[in-house]
Design a protein around this nucleic acid. Structure first.
Lengths: 138, 138
DNA sequence: TTATTTTGTTAGTTAGGACTAACTAATTAT
DNA sequence: ATAATTAGTTAGTCCTAACTAACAAAATAA
C-alpha cells in the first residue's frame, strides 16, 4: 500500500548492509560492536571526560573506565589529564580511533556510488535537491 | 565536496534514530539485540530449521539451539517437527515474535511521515518515482 | 582546617552469548 | 544389516560487558 514506506524499508536495509560490508572490508574485527559504539560517542562528544561519557551512554563509571582501558591499550583512545581539575581527563580518539569515522564514510560513499550508477546526471541532480531539502527539515 | 555522501550520512543517521526510538516505544526490552537479530533472520528466511539458521547467521548449531530455547520459553518462536525428517524442526515466529517486524515498520512509517511533512505532494511524488527507480537497481 | 562531594579506579560478581566435545536419534549409504 | 552421516541437544568452558561496593586523590563547602 504505502509505497514510500516500502521504499524506505529497502533503503534502510541496504544502508545497513553497506555498513556491515564496510566494517568487514576495513578489518575492524579487532573491535566489538560495543567498542565501536564507544568510539562513535567519543567522536560525537569531542573530548568528554569519563563521567560525561558514562552519562551520555547511560552506563556506570566503572563500566566505562574498564572499557576505556581496553581501547587505550589497543591504541584507539588517549586520555589527557585536565589542567583545571587534575582528577579528570579528557578523552581523545587517536588516528587509529578515527578509522571508525572512515568506516561510516566508506559505507556512505559506496551507497552514493550506487546512486550514480542508477541515475542519469539530471535525475541525480533532481534527487539531490529533494533529499537536501529533506535533510534540512530533519 | 560530495553533497550526496553527506546527505546519505544524515539520512542514515536519522533512520537509525527512528529504529532506536521505535524499539523503546514498543517496549521490546525483554529482548537483547542479539535475540532480535534471531527473530529478524527467522522472519526473512521463513521457516528455516536449526541448521539452516545457524549457517545463515554464521553461528554453530549449539549456539543457535541454546538461543532458540530462550526465545521459545519467552514465547517468540515455535519449533514444529518436520514430517519428512523427524530429526528436524521448522522454526516459526509466534504472533508475539512478529512484533519485531512491527518495530521496523513503525520506524519506517514514522520516517515516511516526516517526508510527507517536509514536501509538497508533487515533490513527494517526484521523489517517490526516483527512489523507486533506485531501489529497483539495488 | 576539617568535612563533604566529586572523579575516577580497583576488585569482585553476574548474565549473555559464543565456542568445543561428546552425545542421541534419525536418515542414508554400503 | 550395518556403518556412516546428519540434525539437533547437553554439558562445560571462555570472554565481554554490565553491575555494586569500596576506595584514593583532588576539589569544594562549612
Amino acid at each position: 500500500m504505502d509505497k514510500i514506506v516500502n521504499i524506505i524499508a529497502k533503503l534502510s536495509q541496504n544502508l545497513g548492509e553497506m555498513e556491515e560490508l564496510a566494517r568487514e572490508q576495513l578489518n575492524i574485527k579487532e573491535l566489538t560492536t560495543a567498542q565501536m559504539h564507544y568510539l562513535e560517542v567519543i567522536n560525537e562528544m569531542s573530548n568528554p571526560n569519563v563521567t560525561e561519557l558514562a552519562t551520555e551512554m547511560q552506563l556506570t563509571k566503572p563500566t566505562v573506565t574498564v572499557a576505556l582501558d581496553k581501547l587505550i591499550k589497543k591504541g584507539y583512545v588517549t586520555k589527557i589529564q585536565s589542567d583545571e581539575d587534575r582528577r579528570s581527563s579528557h578523552l581523545h580518539l587517536t588516528k587509529k580511533g578515527m578509522q571508525i569515522n572512515q568506516m561510516h564514510e566508506h559505507a556512505h560513499t559506496q551507497f552514493a556510488e550506487l546512486m550514480r550508477e542508477a541515475f542519469e546526471p539530471e535525475e541525480l541532480e533532481e534527487l539531490t535537491v529533494l533529499l537536501e531539502k529533506l535533510t534540512k527539515s530533519l
